[in-house]
Design a protein around this nucleic acid. Structure first.
Length: 895
RNA sequence: GCCGAAGUGGCGGAAUGGCAGACGCGACGGUCUCAAAAACCGUUGGGGGCAACUCCAUGUGGGUUCGACUCCCACCUUCGGCACCA
């Protein structure tokens, strides 16, 4: 920090720069003093701040850092404010990627995972992200997954874990079953991207549907969650109210349908079953057999994307059978069609083409009858003339007991009336349906928590007794996926004796979905080293719920919904104090960076590099420059000169290993400092937005820290010498102004930090720095006011540039850590100005400004405004109709 | 198709009913230097004017208001989520 590199010609003071080599000593200092250890301030109000724990992917780049920098800034803010803060870290270490990497690099998943953890941890330490490492958890450690197994058994005992055979999502590449949440809209696996197939398998499920209503209702309690996350969860839970109505086939088989419009039952003209519906085989008449089987087979083979495409023409087959409409005993044909999904409702619908868009399209496609039962007000629609369904309000017609009732959901309206009628006549009942499915947790893979259950020879299942947990993942040599769990090949491990009878039995060979591991890890942090329990009630009561959870929007549904579910289960068990895990949620935006690819230009002809040819499907043969630019532009690329050669520069894309645009943490921090990286990330954009990482942004952050050092560095001894002394002096105007600016800044930084407006908090600190520099240049010496400012500045900087803040604190004679120095408080009185500027408007346009005493009242302001020359000239002698006076702000004269 | 968010200088963004463009980046001019970099000083929304100044301007069109980036209505565009959910 002492390397003088130039001389400022105006003040002849040595210029110093921010030196990143000061950082390691402060990290060691914090570590040694335990500044960021939870429980350091017993009795103080506490905070639990948590970033979503990562999958250990090895070397971190600065894009990974953003999440941690936000959490670290908040942690430091609350620590300097005097809170006892829990800020722990861990590793979501189980899961497919380790196994896939193990297969690819021929290393054991454990070895690969732990070496990644060591590397990632080093990056975080170098970056000075401070965690209470004594509470580190690693999900692939038996001391952790033991409690995963315990949790599984708790759910089992409560009837919330069950085994069932069902049609499940099968990923043919990763060779495993996936949860619904892990399959995207196009029917592709979240990991492998492969088209998922449907298979009938026996699997373990968690009964999350038992909590559907609470998961939905309690979203309203989460006032500090982003609205869009809550909306996504609401949509995912997908509650709809309606009725179940029982139809009967002519042979007497009961066919239950779910409908949200039981009022339109009288308009049902046919019925549709999902192709997979269990009654299809039984009901199909012999003459239709071949046709129906062909259709069922075809729809099984069709990919999810083809099947669910909304633009597709409706397809279906009449199965030859008829059902009786329970409300009017009408005989209606039964069809199968793939637009009816087995996974929703009952897999069977009554079709009311007049009032449902899809049924309408189907009826038109196959010439099925349409009957109007809701007549829109003031219209008289007829089935023949309809060009689209009428799903809206009107009055019920052709509906027996419902005729004349207004169509709608409210009291005294058709839906309620229909449900009442159905219940009274025993033909159906009001019901609520959710789109949420139970959580399928079995995985036929090696690298996960073994499911702690034992299968007896008679087919029954018993849990592994608690005192035999954990069921340790066995060592095997071949973890290649093969359609059944690789664990099945560990025969010594699989073959056990029944804990109750001593008879030979077999272990369950599947492992748990990694989302089970991450659904409760935040609870383990409260008591991470407890060998007796999953966590103690007291520890959970002390810290839970998490006060601030920070992570990516990509977990809006999966992880957050599962965590809420598990917390509710544990709450019902009396183990946690609150039935929601995360009081506040913040979803941060991505860090992006442009990708630069060198391009060959010879004789004005451009040859694209191989990687761009493949990625953007560009021509292999050389093209002229204009064509090249146009082709690149289509993909958001520009062609630019770079030194001697040329580069194709992409638009900003998320930093990632695959895009090759990550800036590694280690080298960056060593060259520029972690404080620079933090300022870049926090200042560039609001933290919820994505931000572009640029060299200019880095230079700007560096400049800011350099200016701080250049201002305070040369004066450090003098500032330190004045520390704690009280001065009696008559403040100059400049003193008063700087004092006011300091307190304005304290207020703004405090408020902005609490609201996650780190970019404006840092802007305020830059602004104050600019003022302080001007002040110091004019004063020409270290004044009492400058000393006051310097002391406060170090503390205000501490959440954002912690190493420099600690250095400043030490320079200025501070004892111990800046984080024990307390956060500066602003003084409202200091914000007052004796004289303020008031804006004068004529007809809403600014026409002048006057300086007036701050306490000037309305009458005075009015007087001054009206007598103002410029105001007069704009009134142009017209009569003044109205004068609006906003004391302290403006006067608007309406003429 | 449904739901949601957003649209402000060359760029990131600031201002949630009261001076639009804080802070930063970039650009331009200057100081220092043999030169460059760094650093420092200044200018920087657009039009008009020698100037004091003035007009226009926050996606588009309307409205409410003394006053609208901010509130209301309609539309356009972009992004995100869901999507044959009965």
């Amino acid at each position: 920090m002492t390397d003088t590199i130039a001389t400022d010609t105006t003040t002849k003071r040595a210029i110093e720069r921010f030196d990143p080599s000061i950082e390691p000593k402060w990290r060691a200092f914090w570590e040694q003093k335990g500044i960021f250890s939870a429980g350091r301030r017993p009795g103080a109000p506490n905070r639990y701040i948590l970033e979503m724990f990562p999958y250990p992917s090895g070397d971190l780049h600065v894009g990974h850092l953003k999440n941690y920098v936000i959490g670290d800034a908040l942690t430091r803010y609350y620590v300097i404010r005097g809170y006892d803060v829990l800020h722990p870290f861990g590793w979501d270490a189980f899961g497919l990627p380790a196994e896939n990497a193990a297969i690819k690099f021929k290393r054991h998943p454990r070895e690969w995972t732990y070496s990644n953890i060591a590397e990632s941890k080093k990056s975080l330490e170098i970056a000075g992200i401070m965690y209470d490492w004594s509470r580190e958890v690693t999900t692939c450690d038996p001391n952790y997954y033991k409690w995963n197994q315990w949790l599984f058994q708790l759910l089992y005992k409560k009837g919330l874990a069950y085994r069932a055979s069902s049609l499940v999502n099968w990923d043919p590449v990763d060779q495993t079953v996936l949860a619904n949440e892990q399959v995207d809209a196009e029917g592709r696996s979240w990991r492998s991207g492969a088209q998922v197939e449907k298979r009938e398998l026996e699997q373990w499920f968690f009964k999350i549907t038992a909590y559907a209503e609470r998961l939905l209702q309690d979203l309203d309690k989460l006032t500090d969650w982003p609205e869009r996350v809550k909306i996504m969860q609401r949509n995912w839970i997908g509650k709809s109210e309606g009725a179940e109505v029982t139809f009967e086939s002519e042979q007497g088989d009961q066919i239950v349908v779910f409908t949200t419009r039981p009022d339109t039952l009288w308009g049902a003209t046919f019925m549709v079953l999902a192709p997979e519906h269990p009654l299809v085989a039984k009901l199909t008449t012999p003459d239709k057999q071949a046709e129906v089987e062909a259709y069922v087979t075809k729809s099984k083979l069709e990919s999810e994307i083809e099947r669910t495409s909304t633009t597709k023409e409706k397809t279906g087959v009449f199965i030859g059978a008829y059902a009786i409409n329970p409300v009017n005993d009408e005989r209606i044909p039964i069809w199968i069609a793939d637009y009816v999904l087995m996974g929703y409702g009952t897999g069977a619908i009554m079709a009311v083409p007049a009032h449902d868009e899809r049924d309408f399209a189907f009826a038109r496609q196959f010439n099925l009858p349409i009957r109007v039962v809701v007549q829109p007000e003031g219209q008289n629609i007829s089935a023949e003339a309809m060009s689209e369904a009428w799903p809206d309000e009107g009055v019920m017609v052709n509906s027996g007991p419902l005729d004349g009732v207004p169509a709608g959901k409210g009291e005294g309206q058709s839906v309620k009336a229909a449900i009442a009628w159905l219940e009274e006549h025993g033909k159906g009942k009001g019901t609520i349906n959710y789109r949420l499915r139970d959580w399928l947790i079995s995985r036929q893979r090696y690298w996960g928590t073994p499911i702690p259950m034992i299968h007896r020879e008679d087919g029954s299942i018993v849990p592994v007794p608690d005192d035999q947990l954990p069921v340790v993942l066995p060592e095997i040599s071949d973890y290649l996926p093969k359609g059944r769990s690789p664990l099945a090949s560990a025969t010594d491990w699989v073959n056990v004796t029944d804990p109750e009878t001593g008879e030979p039995a077999r272990r369950d060979t599947d492992t748990m979905d990694t989302f089970v591991d991450s659904s409760w890890y935040y609870l383990r942090f409260t008591d991470a080293n407890n060998a007796q329990e999953i966590f103690s009630k007291e520890a959970a009561a002390t810290w839970m719920p998490v006060d601030q959870y920070i992570g990516g929007i990509e977990h809006a549904i999966l992880h957050l919904l599962y965590s809420r579910f598990i917390t509710k289960v544990l709450y019902d068990e009396g183990l946690v104090p609150d039935d929601e895990p995360f009081r506040a949620l913040f979803t941060q935006g991505m860090v992006q960076r442009r990708v630069r690819t060198p391009v060959m230009i010879e004789n004005d002809m451009v040859t694209f590099p191989e990687e761009l040819i493949r990625k953007l499907e560009l021509p292999r043969e050389p093209v002229d420059e204009t064509t090249a630019r146009a082709q690149l532009k289509l993909h958001g690329y520009v062609l630019e000169r770079a030194g001697e050669g040329w580069e194709a520069i992409s638009g900003p894309v998320t930093m990632s290993k695959s895009a090759g645009n990550g800036v590694p943490v280690g080298p960056f921090v060593r060259q520029y400092g972690s404080d620079v990286a933090r300022i870049v990330v926090l200042f560039a954009a609001p933290p919820e937005n994505s931000m572009e990482w640029t060299d200019e942004g880095v230079a700007g952050a560096q400049r800011f820290l350099n200016r701080i050092v250049a201002l305070f560095g040369p004066d450090q001894a003098e500032i330190a010498a004045r520390k704690g002394r009280m001065y009696k002096y008559t403040p100059t105007e400049a003193d008063k102004t700087l004092h006011r600016r300091l307190h304005e800044t304290i207020k703004k930084v405090t408020q902005d930090t609490e609201e996650f407006h780190f970019n404006t908090a840092i802007a305020a600190l830059m602004s104050l720095l600019n003022d302080a520099i001007s002040y110091r240049n004019q004063a020409g010496e270290v004044t009492p006011m400058f000393t006051e400012l310097a002391q406060a500045y170090a503390r205000l900087l501490s959440p954002f540039a912690p190493h420099l803040a600690e250095e400043l604190h030490a320079w200025f004679g501070g004892e111990g850590s800046v984080y024990d120095a307390g956060w500066p408080e602003w003084d409202e009185a200091a914000l007052m100005q004796s004289e303020i500027e008031v804006v004068l408007q004529v007809n809403g346009k600014v026409r002048g400004k006057i300086n007036v005493p701050a306490q000037a009242d309305e009458a005075q302001l009015r007087e001054w405004a009206l007598s103002n020359e410029r105001v007069q000239s704009f009134i142009e002698g017209k009569p003044v109709r109205k004068v609006i006076v906003v004391p302290g702000k403006l006067v608007n004269v309406v003429a």
